[in-house]
Design a protein around this nucleic acid. Structure first.
Length: 652
RNA sequence: GCGCCUGUAGCUCAGUGGAUAGAGCGACGGACUCCGGAUCCGUAGGUCGGAGGUUCGAAUCCUCUCAGGCGCGCCA
């Protein structure tokens, strides 16, 4: 569709440029609200009417004559107050689409793109908010890769932050446990979830313990045991749990850059030298911020952001600026790496400050996406401003904050979790998820409930499947349900989490999409069983120009009833939009578009095969048309689901 | 106080300045012994928070206003 539209636009411009005052960018198509009005429309007569002080409908009529006989166009029509509607040549379009189904018209634009997502503090179990982050980030990665981009996926690990310190404090001072004791604890991330919120409450209630916490922090920073070893063991173990959780929903990473390595390799010191050198930051010698290094803010001249505290330590933003510089290869220094785990032949690397000869290198991207929720918008803005302060304007331009609203809990879901809230919070419409308070739905709990429900359904519908097949299918359904749920809302929409919504398998849900794909596959499987024609045979016949194609009859659209032609065409013309939907989603970072596209496609597909029998059709020509139709739609759907990370079970 | 975001059907949400504002859920009524009913078809349900403005055309852009949310630290 992208190609055809581009070609048509160029042709139209050629035909019209001498008659009307136009530039190529003035010519753009929109989709008519109804299929019977046409496949594409030009609203060009309206702006022209204004410029020329003429009647738009009259201009449209004139245009019609000039545009007569364009390639790929079957018919033109003037409609409404002055639209020019295009009806495409159906058979040619369909034939062309089938033959080019394996070739993408999308092209990469960058040398390397870094996407950073997930970034969960390694001190507690992952919760639903983290799932939204990972689903959005991973879908972006899949779309960029589909586009042909080289993508590096990073999951930043803050293994020396105060959140880890809190848990170390809890283990040593509240639990009085040794590193060896921890080895025996199962579901370690769940254990820490409780311990963390308990410790936070304890620290809040006992200000006198603050000194001990500070001491732990210092000892961790200086690598002193047992605190340092404990922090390392805890963060690695939690990290492993997070990775296992994310694997359940098909999310994987290339590299895990750690805060400890940033400190160990003195990335900040290098960034600090750069900032001072280029005068991106200034030293304050009097006033409230005396003794600090600060950055002036661009839009708020009177405000300044502290980058280095008066005690000489660096703030969060400062470290983030250093990290962002590294991502663009502007620090002229890299981490060292060692393998963290291997999975399906893919090695996940973790950064280390200790020199080694792994030969691995990461970073040095031409474009960066940071997937972080909207509450960090201000800080992300400051980080980009830091790049500009260093005169890295191109990199600042290519720094993208992929922001999204948080996931909160409905009062009903709180009740279901048996969580009590304070009286002043009881009336709220939603409750913010908080690791500090232990307030939230743990990712694995939600996934387990999805699996449990899916398993019951599979058991009911496919009792003949082997238990491990049932389990596998239930896992895939849970994954599909969750990923679609996280994708279907626009990113600026606050998700007020409710178990009933998330656990639904009917209507606009992941399982609905999966069901559609499974049913289609089942038609092709039956065809192979009954007629000995495999999907591969069909693919060969339909998508090639060689001798196999000769075996496949021409596409006899004319043998279909008019009503069926419009159902067929509605499906094909819509499915052909996938690539522009991908581009649109990536450009706007709005993957609810892609989700909506998948859902609409499935609605059309379900309605189509429900209405028109495929295998039972006796008219050979009609049957072939229907097979070709669902074959095309199946390929598009498979690609779409893959982009969203929604797996397709064998049966369900 | 300043900045950002949100307000659309009973509920949850879509809706690139374009034609009669759409889905899902819920409600009600239907679907052929047939490729699987996690499906399909139909009915009901709307002053797009409010008021101005720009435009041939506004849910969409601008101004004001009301309501809600989130940010704005020598925390991370």
């Amino acid at each position: 569709m992208l190609k055809i539209k581009a070609q048509l636009k160029a042709d139209i411009f050629e035909r019209l440029k001498s008659r009307y005052p136009l530039s190529p960018s003035d010519i753009d198509f929109l989709y008519p609200p109804q299929l019977k009005m046409g496949d594409l429309a030009l609203s060009l007569p309206f702006p022209l009417a204004k410029k020329l002080k003429a009647n738009p409908r009259q201009i449209a009529q004139e245009m019609l004559v000039l545009l007569e006989g364009l390639p790929c166009v079957d018919k033109l029509e003037v409609a409404g107050a002055g639209y020019v509607n295009f009806f495409l040549e159906k058979k040619d379009f369909f034939k062309y689409r089938l033959r080019s189904i394996r070739t993408s018209s999308l092209r990469p634009e960058e040398t390397k793109i870094i996407v950073e997502h997930t970034n969960i503090n390694p001190n507690k179990a992952a919760h639903i908010g983290h799932l939204r982050n990972a689903c959005l980030g991973d879908t972006l990665v899949r779309c960029l890769r589909d586009k042909g981009e080289t993508v590096e996926v990073q999951n930043y690990i803050d293994d020396t932050g105060v959140q880890v310190v809190d848990v170390v404090f809890g283990v040593l001072e509240l639990e009085k446990k040794s590193p060896a004791d921890l080895e025996t604890i199962e579901k370690f991330d769940y254990y820490c979830w409780d311990l963390y919120s308990r410790t936070v409450a304890y620290l809040d209630g006992h200000p006198e313990t603050q000194a001990r916490k500070t001491e732990i922090l210092k000892r961790i920073e200086h690598g002193q045991n047992p605190e340092s070893g404990l922090a390392h063991a805890i963060s690695r173990r939690i990290l492993t749990a997070h990775l296992a959780t994310m694997k359940r929903i098909g999310v994987a990473y290339d590299v895990l850059p750690c805060e400890s390595s940033i400190l160990g390799l003195k990335f900040w010191e290098m960034a600090f030298a750069l900032l001072k050198d280029k005068q991106g930051i200034t030293y304050v010698s009097e006033g409230d911020n005396k003794g600090c290094w600060v950055m002036k803010l661009e839009d708020e001249a009177e405000k300044e952001k502290i980058i280095v505290r008066s005690d000489g330590t660096v703030t969060y933003v400062g470290k983030d600026i250093a990290y962002q510089l590294w991502k663009f290869g502007l620090l002229e220094k890299d981490f060292y790496y060692e393998p963290f785990l291997k999975d399906d032949g893919h090695t996940l690397w973790i950064s280390t400050a200790a020199p080694n000869d792994s030969g691995q290198a990461f970073g040095g991207a031409s474009k960066v996406y940071n997937v972080i929720d909207t509450r960090q918008s201000y800080l992300q803005k400051v980080v980009v401003q830091g790049l500009r302060a260093l005169h890295f304007f191109r990199q600042a331009e290519k720094s993208n904050h992929f922001s999204y609203e948080m996931v909160a809990l409905s009062p009903r879901s709180l009740k279901e979790l048996n969580i009590e809230v304070s009286r002043e919070e009881a009336g709220k419409a939603f409750h913010e998820v908080s690791g500090r308070k232990g307030l939230g739905v743990k990712a694995d709990d939600l996934l387990n409930r999805l699996v449990e429900k899916a398993l019951a359904e599979v058991d009911k519908r496919n009792p003949d499947l082997r238990p491990e097949q049932k389990k596998r299918t239930a896992g895939q359904i849970a994954c599909g349900a969750l990923r679609y749920f996280m994708l279907k809302y626009a990113r600026n929409s606050l998700i007020i989490f409710d178990f009933d919504d998330a656990l639904s398998f009917e209507g606009e849900t992941g399982p609905y999409l999966q069901y559609t794909a499974v049913r289609l596959n089942s038609i092709f499987r039956k065809m192979e069983d009954r007629e000995g024609v495999s999907l591969a045979d069909i693919e060969k016949g339909l998508s090639s120009e060689g001798p196999e194609a000769a075996a496949w009859p021409e596409f006899p659209i004319e043998s279909l009833a008019p009503e069926e032609v419009s159902s067929f065409w509605d499906l094909i013309i819509y499915a052909a939009r996938l690539e522009e939907e991908i581009l649109h989603s990536v450009e706007s970072l709005e993957f609810s578009h892609l989700a909506k596209f998948a859902f609409n496609l499935c609605q059309k597909l379900n309605a189509y095969y429900h209405r028109y029998p495929i295998l039972a059709e006796e008219n050979k020509a009609v049957k072939n048309m229907r097979i070709a139709t669902i074959y095309f739609a199946r390929q598009v759907l498979a690609r779409t689901l893959d982009l969203m990370g929604v797996p397709v079970p064998e049966r369900m």
